[in-house]
C-alpha cells in the first residue's frame, strides 16, 4: 500500500511537467501582449514597443523557458506583470474564496443530491422519481452562469434577500460572509447536484435488489428503514469517489461563477489574467489547478483501495 502511494506520487512529477510545458508553449504562441493591453485602445505601435522593451517582454522563448523551469524547481512561479507581486502570493490571496466556494457548493450538492437520489429510488418509476430526475438533469444541463443570473434575478433583484455580488471575509463578518457566498454556492452546487442524485438512485436500486435487503424486509422491517440503515451506506461509496472526480467540474465552474458574482478567487484571477495576458499568473494558476486535480485523483484512488478490499492494484 505505501509503496503504491509513493509510486503514484512520483508519477505526478512528470505529469505536472508535461502540463506546465504545454501551458507554457500555448501561452507563448497565442497572440496578445501585456504591454498593448496596459496602454489601452488608442496607443500607438511605437508606445507599445517601447513599453514592451522597458518591461523586458521581448526576450526569446529559448531564454524564458529554461528560466521558468529553473524557477519551478524551487517552487517559484515568477512575478505577476500587473499585480506587481510574486505569483505565489497572488494565488495565496485568492485561494480562500475559491476553496470556500467549492466546499459550500459541494455541501449543497450533497445535501440536495443525496436525499433526492434516495427519494427517487424509493419511488422508482413514479411521478416523484421522474420529477426529481428531470430536476437533476436540468441542473447539470443548464450552464452555471445562466443559473447564476437566474438566482440573482430572483433573490437579489426581485426579493432583495441576498447581495448580487461581492465578497465578505468570514473573519470580518460571518453573517455577511454566508450571505455573500450563498448564491454563488447554490449556482455551483445545484449545477453538480444531479451527479450524486443520479448515482445514489441507481446504486441504491441495485443494492435494494440484494439478498440481504430482501432478508431484512422479509423480517418485517419497512423499506425506508432498510434503505437508510443498510442500503444507503453501501450505495454512498461510489458517490464519494465520483464527487472526488467532480472536483474538476467544481474548479471549472468556479471560474465562471466567480466572474458573475465578482468573487476575488482563483477563477476570477485567471480570467482577468488571460484578458490582460499576465503570463506568469496564468501559468501559475494552471500549475496549481493541475496539482489540485492530480492530488484529488490520487486521493480517490487510494481511498478506493482502502474502502474496498476487493480492489487491488498491481504491486499494491
Amino acid at each position: 500500500m505505501i509503496a503504491y502511494v509513493l509510486r503514484r506520487i512520483l508519477l505526478l512529477v512528470p505529469i505536472a511537467l508535461v502540463v506546465g510545458t504545454v501551458a507554457f508553449l500555448l501561452l507563448h504562441v497565442i497572440p496578445g501582449d501585456p504591454a498593448a493591453v496596459m496602454l489601452g485602445p488608442e496607443a500607438t505601435p511605437e508606445q507599445v514597443a517601447a513599453l514592451r522593451e522597458r518591461m523586458g517582454l521581448d526576450e526569446p522563448l529559448a531564454v524564458q523557458y529554461p528560466r521558468w523551469l529553473a524557477r519551478l524547481a524551487r517552487l517559484d512561479l515568477g512575478t505577476s506583470i500587473f499585480l506587481d507581486k510574486p505569483v505565489t502570493e497572488a494565488i495565496r490571496e485568492r485561494v480562500g474564496p475559491t476553496v470556500q466556494l467549492a466546499l459550500y457548493a459541494l455541501l449543497i450538492a450533497v445535501a440536495v443530491g443525496v436525499p433526492a437520489g434516495v427519494v427517487a429510488a424509493l419511488h422508482q418509476d413514479r411521478l416523484l422519481d421522474r420529477a426529481l430526475m428531470l430536476f437533476a438533469i436540468s441542473g447539470t444541463a443548464i450552464a452555471d452562469f445562466f443559473l447564476a443570473i437566474l438566482l440573482i434575478l430572483l433573490f437579489s433583484v426581485t426579493l432583495r434577500w441576498l447581495p448580487s455580488g461581492g465578497y465578505v471575509e468570514f473573519s470580518v463578518d460571518p453573517v455577511g460572509h454566508f450571505q455573500s457566498m450563498l448564491l454563488p454556492a447554490m449556482a455551483l452546487g445545484l449545477s453538480i447536484a444531479g451527479l450524486p442524485a443520479r448515482l445514489v438512485r441507481s446504486t441504491l436500486l441495485e443494492v435494494l435488489r440484494e439478498d440481504y435487503i430482501r432478508t431484512a424486509t422479509a423480517k418485517g422491517l419497512d423499506l425506508e428503514a432498510v434503505a437508510f440503515r443498510h442500503a444507503l451506506r453501501n450505495a454512498l461509496l461510489p458517490a464519494v469517489t465520483v464527487l472526488g472526480y467532480a472536483l474538476g467540474d467544481l474548479l471549472g465552474g468556479a471560474v465562471v461563477v466567480e466572474t458573475v458574482f465578482g468573487l476575488p478567487g482563483m477563477g476570477q484571477l485567471v480570467v482577468n489574467s488571460i484578458a490582460r495576458r499576465d503570463f506568469p499568473v496564468i501559468q501559475g494558476v494552471v500549475m496549481v489547478f493541475a496539482g489540485i486535480y492530480l492530488l484529488c485523483n490520487l486521493l480517490v484512488d487510494v481511498l478506493y483501495v482502502y474502502l474496498d478490499p476487493r480492489v487491488r492494484y498491481a504491486g499494491g
Partner: peptide
C-alpha cells in the same frame, strides 16, 4: 470602485441597490 466584468451582474447589482 468595484470590478464587475459581467454586464448582467452589473445591471442586476444596480437594480438590487448594490
Amino acid at each position: 470602485f468595484i470590478p464587475v466584468p459581467n454586464e448582467a451582474s452589473r445591471v442586476a447589482g444596480l437594480r438590487s441597490g448594490n
